[in-house]
Design a protein around this nucleic acid. Structure first.
Lengths: 340, 340
DNA sequence: GTGAAGCATGTGAACGTTCACAAGAAAACG
DNA sequence: CGTTTTCTTGTGAACGTTCACATGCTTCAC
């Protein structure tokens, strides 16, 4: 509550003078150096308060070569998953004493990532989180671009040797497919996500392999673009080729919404005629018509873990890269039922 | 593609030596100072390239007292609107040469905003965008907290004297209500958002006043929490009090999804028995059952404009505060129809 | 009571830029 | 051709911190 003038910023020296000590002593107090007597620390803290002093990060990071800054390079931030992650990444970063700078990219190209990194490399960013859910840039390229800045990748393929945190999408696909098989479905089709997304590929492949392992012939598949409208159109197209399936696996919940709409328009009831499973468990899924059975992804945990892992890598860079894996869960609702 | 050692950062001096000029000349080239001859500029640029030099922001902002950093303090970032805005704010900020630091807050209290500002005030943040859609902290308090840092508020009440960019929610509410009136509805109820959100209040009030102006008695109203489930529950409650309405205005699209579900379960068809209007026009709304008539908010424009206005305020701080207003539009689909 | 050890505090330099000013070279003017 | 003007380049200081080291004082052991 001081009447500070905006014309001059308060510095270490001002505080020092006010407290009657040297600037170095003030610096020690700020950085919690134990070699300060109780009484002087008290006095300095009072001075800091009285003058409303705030340490200048620019000056500090100039000499320490640390910035307390993390960067997040995200692709597809308008989608539910990524946007959810960003929120939780920020929260986790703050908890660990970092601030977060945002960088969205709209094309998954070396070019774009390069410019996102370069734009901030002068800021001495200490670590980078990359949300790179689509094919386009390899781990090796990223390694070249980041030039030694620690990073963690989210949504890379399972088994990649890049440091990262991923949700096991194969397991998720298996969960969905097994669920339908267990309900007695023999003819199961799929609406996949765009097949340049790792998650879409993994779910597609596990749909295929799970069916094969069960001795069943996979039905038709069509690809959507993650949106409800895309799911609607893909399902319409699927229906021109095949109208006899009883199970449908859809790459995410938004597309499932569109898919159910297309089915209904074609005179097929969910779940009486066709059982539908989605992915993600968006908050709205429970209010779909009917409430959607879906494979839940814990994006919150994904975000939090990725920051923790990144900070771990910053502090111990010599540690070999690892891939931390999270597992999705099946949420059963009313869009699936047993074949009569 | 130089084989730079990580042990030593490349500085102005290195570049200067490599190019055979003084460090100041290099500085001039970087800052596009016209007082450099063509040939030396050429030579310096080559040296910069060869050494892969990146200016150190910390050093630069130490002397210039500028950071090229904007902060966004957002509340409710898991909701569709805010998360959409953040994406577009980042894009707009980058276009204008700024980087964006993220700060989410979970409670709309002076305390929380204060700590979000303080946490970054040492970074010499040049401007702040506040997404403050709920009651809790007044403009005057914000003014005290920010201490002279330019800021722009999003989602403040219409007519507030805070500098800001807002969507005219009164107009939106009018649009929705007028639409139903024009279709012949006489008995119109409402599911509002939480009534500590400015937008929810504005829509609620304009629903009331539009009906009164038209000489109609407002129906019942219940408040939801913006989620589909919340809308579902609020509608169920509404139905215990009144089942005779033919029009329903719902505070956002997610709640409208839940509302339609509750109506259907109660044996009421949309739109045959009840016409429903939502707000926002989320991408899924077109695939609802039936496709939702809704009042579209242009969050992209809102985000972009707020950054432009903020930068304007940074450059011309003496300019008096203004409120820039955007207008929503009605998107007609199949959830509304004329009363027979 | 003397030397070593530990603690509290202070001093000078450095981090990598930009700013203000100076200086030299080239161009323009009478 | 001398003088002013313009353009290009260089020098020293400053921004606000932290780091490495120095200093003086206290404490402790023998």
């Amino acid at each position: 509550m001081s009447s500070d003038k905006l014309s001059k910023r308060v510095t270490l020296h001002d505080v020092a003078q006010h407290a009657g000590v040297s600037y170095q002593t003030v610096s020690r107090v700020i950085n919690d150096d134990p070699h300060v007597s109780k009484s002087t620390r008290q006095r300095v803290l009072q001075a800091i308060n009285a003058l409303d002093y705030r340490p200048n990060y620019a000056a500090r990071s100039l000499v320490t070569r640390r910035s307390n800054l993390l960067e997040i390079i995200s692709f597809g931030a308008t989608h539910y998953g990524p946007s959810q992650m960003v929120t939780h990444i920020e929260r986790a970063a703050r908890r660990l004493g970092y601030n977060l700078i945002l960088s969205h990219i709209t094309d998954m190209t070396t070019q774009e990532i390069n410019s996102a990194v370069n734009r901030l490399s002068g800021r001495l960013v200490e670590g980078i989180i990359l949300i790179t859910p689509v094919i386009g840039v390899s781990y090796e390229e990223i390694l070249g671009i980041t030039r030694g800045i620690p990073f963690v990748m989210i949504d890379t393929p399972l088994g990649s040797n890049a440091p990262g945190v991923v949700i096991n999408q194969h397991y998720g696909g298996e969960l969905a497919t097994q669920h339908l098989i267990a309900l007695g479905h023999r003819h199961i089709c799929e609406i996949s996500g765009p097949l340049n997304w790792f998650g879409a590929i993994a779910r597609h492949e596990s749909w295929l392999s799970t069916l094969r392992v069960a001795g069943l012939e996979p039905g038709k598949s069509a690809a959507g673009d993650w949106t409800a409208v895309g799911g609607y159109q893909a399902t319409q197209q699927l229906l021109t080729e095949d109208r006899t399936f009883t199970g449908l696996i859809v790459g995410n919940d938004q597309m499932a919404l569109g898919a159910m709409r297309a089915l209904r328009e074609a005179g097929l009831r969910v779940p009486e005629d066709v059982s539908v499973v989605g992915f993600d468990d968006i908050p709205e899924a429970i209010c779909f018509e009917p409430p959607l059975t879906t494979v839940r992804q814990d994006f919150d945990a994904l975000g939090a873990q990725s920051v923790e892992y990144l900070v771990d890598r910053i502090n111990r860079p010599e540690q070999p890269a690892q891939q931390r894996v999270l597992y999705p869960t099946l949420v059963m609702r009313q869009s699936t039922r047993a074949v009569p």
